[in-house]
């Protein structure tokens, strides 16, 4: 069954009718972990706000658990969980008070759905009398997730939960999401970090309010049309410059310690010779494993 169905959704802002969400359509299966991957300003937050009924669309339609986001907004409000991008808990209330408050607002109790949050809550329980404002980033995030889960939502919307969070906390957070998925909760998550895409069941790459591609991360990577090479040299900056000026290069860019490049014609030996001829040392050329980031760059190119 489809938990979320989005059809030609449009959102514009202001007098200039700046388009934030441009004719977006996708659907999410029940129990799926779906990622909206794209940079800031791509329209991720607007989509989430429309789906959680806090924003009215300017065109198109969408439903969550079969309820229309405009007509049945009250039904949706009582059944979804939402974690906005900014840390949105009461900083001057303790962990326990925050959780209790949100449980009551949603007409439930902590005890009733404790099993859902138990895994996460035990990690922050030792600090339950500490005020939320005094928690570390990772702990705040865990608390926010508990609060979004406490009323046993059918669908969970997480808007950039890992932005500004260090890589270790990010990993932990994704592990929590994987475990939640086992509870058959549909999860929609947005992120600007391309490397998190592979942790989702399916993803939509989004930029400028438009969806560039939707599929499983593996299929998206497999669909990469060109042969991608990873190239390394001791002089990185110079390498990038030389690649840029190479006549056969379609696209080239830095990628970690390597440069990634696609060519019209891939003769690695000729390429190595070309690079050495331009004074580069320690040249290494090999086939690269395509990542979501490579695909995104390709789609933007």
């Amino acid at each position: 069954m489809e938990a979320v169905v989005v059809k030609n959704l449009v959102k514009t802002y202001g007098k200039e009718q700046t388009v934030a969400v441009d004719n977006v359509s996708f659907s999410v299966e029940q129990g799926e972990l779906f990622g909206l991957i794209g940079p800031d300003g791509a329209g991720k937050t607007s989509i989430f706000r429309m789906l959680t009924t806090s924003l009215l669309p300017d065109g198109g339609s969408a439903s969550v658990d079969g309820h229309d986001i405009v007509q049945d907004f009250r039904r949706i409000r009582s059944s979804v969980g939402y974690m906005p991008g900014k840390f949105s808990l009461y900083q001057d209330l303790t962990i326990e008070e925050n959780l209790h408050f949100f449980a009551t607002v949603f007409g439930t109790t902590i005890e009733e759905n404790y099993h859902l949050i138990k895994d996460i809550y035990v990690q922050i329980e030792p600090f339950k009398n500490r005020r939320a404002g005094k928690l570390s980033g990772g702990m705040k995030q865990k608390l926010a997730l508990c609060c979004a889960l406490i009323h046993k939502p059918t669908t969970l919307f997480l808007d950039e939960p890992t932005t500004g969070v260090d890589p270790v906390s990010r990993k932990e957070f994704w592990e929590m999401l994987r475990r939640l998925k086992e509870q058959r909760i549909t999860i929609l998550v947005s992120t600007p970090y391309m490397d998190e895409a592979s942790l989702c069941d399916r993803i939509a790459l989004i930029q400028g309010g438009k969806i560039l591609s939707i599929d499983t991360p593996q299929n998206i990577v497999n669909a990469y049309p060109d042969k991608l090479l990873a190239i390394k040299a001791n002089e990185m900056y110079k390498l990038l410059k030389v690649l840029e000026s190479h006549p056969g290069v379609i696209n080239s860019y830095a990628f970690g310690e390597y440069a990634h490049a696609t060519f019209h014609d891939t003769d690695t030996h000729a390429l190595q010779a070309y690079l050495r001829g331009h004074g580069l040392t320690g040249v290494e050329v090999k086939g690269a494993e395509v990542t979501i980031e490579d695909t995104f760059i390709k789609l933007l190119h």
Binding site: R49, R77, Y82, G85, S88, G107, C147, A148
Partner: peptide, 13 residues
Amino acid sequence: ETGTMEILLVSPF
């Protein structure tokens, strides 16, 4: 400002 209004709006309250 803190964004909690957004959560409250999205709640059945």
